[in-house]
Computed example of a mutant assay.
Amino acid sequence: MQLATVLEREFTVTVNGKPVTLKDPDNSWTPKQVRSFYGAATYPQVLNANIEGPVIENDKRVYKFVTTLGTKG
């Protein structure tokens, strides 16, 4: 019998044009709760960001916080 493996989560945001990897503060939280945690504590630009993902990369579930700041249209 083979057991299922739960993949770790990872979150990313682009800051000043560079991707920043954010650790999962609590795997029981929803991605929206994680967004609020990082937005309030460190990265206020993610508070209104869209959440994309998850995408499986390197055996992790990767979510991206995508902001629309600085774009026109």
Rank of each mutant, 00 (worst) to 15 (best):
L7A: 07
T14N: 10
I56A: 12
W29G: 00
T12W: 03
D24E: 11
T42E: 14
I56M: 09
R9C: 05
N27F: 08
D24L: 09
P25C: 13
K18V: 05
E10K: 15
N50M: 11
F65W: 00
S36N: 15
E52H: 11
D59V: 01
F37Y: 14
N27E: 14
R9V: 10
R9D: 05
A41Y: 09
E57S: 14
P54I: 02
V46G: 01
V20W: 06
Y63I: 09
Q33A: 11
G39V: 06
R61V: 02
L7H: 03
V6S: 07
K32H: 14
D24Y: 07
A49R: 01
V46L: 07
F11E: 02
E57G: 07
G39T: 11
V55A: 08
V46C: 04
A41F: 09
R61I: 03
K32P: 06
Y43H: 07
T30D: 09
V20T: 07
N50C: 04
S36A: 14
L47F: 05
T14S: 14
P19S: 04
K60R: 12
L47S: 15
G39P: 09
Y38V: 00
V20K: 05
F37N: 06
N16P: 00
K32V: 13
K64E: 10
V46I: 13
E10H: 06
F11C: 04
V46W: 00
F65D: 02
L22E: 03
S28C: 10
N58E: 11
K60M: 13
V20D: 02
V15W: 05
L22T: 01
E52K: 07
E52S: 08
V13W: 01
N58H: 06
Q33R: 09
E10V: 10
W29E: 03
G39L: 11
P19C: 06
L7I: 00
Q45D: 02
T12C: 04
D26R: 11
L22G: 05
P19A: 04
K18N: 12
F11Y: 14
K64W: 04
V6N: 08
D59M: 10
S28T: 14
F11P: 00
Y43N: 01
T12S: 04
V62A: 07
G53Q: 03
D59F: 09
V46A: 06
Q45Y: 02
T14L: 08
V46T: 03
A49F: 08
E52W: 08
P54T: 04
V20S: 03
T42V: 12
T14E: 13
I51A: 04
I51G: 02
V20A: 01
E8A: 14
V15H: 08
A41K: 13
P31C: 01
G17E: 06
K18E: 15
E8Q: 15
K23Q: 14
K23G: 12
R61A: 13
V34T: 01
K60Y: 10
N27P: 11
V55E: 13
V13K: 00
T42P: 02
G17K: 07
K23P: 09
Y43Q: 00
T21V: 13
P31H: 00
P25M: 09
P31L: 00
V15K: 10
R61C: 08
F11Q: 02
V6M: 09
R35M: 08
K23Y: 08
S36W: 09
V34A: 00
K18S: 07
P54W: 00
S36T: 13
P25L: 10
D26Q: 10
R61G: 01
P25G: 08
N58V: 02
K32L: 15
R9E: 10
D26H: 09
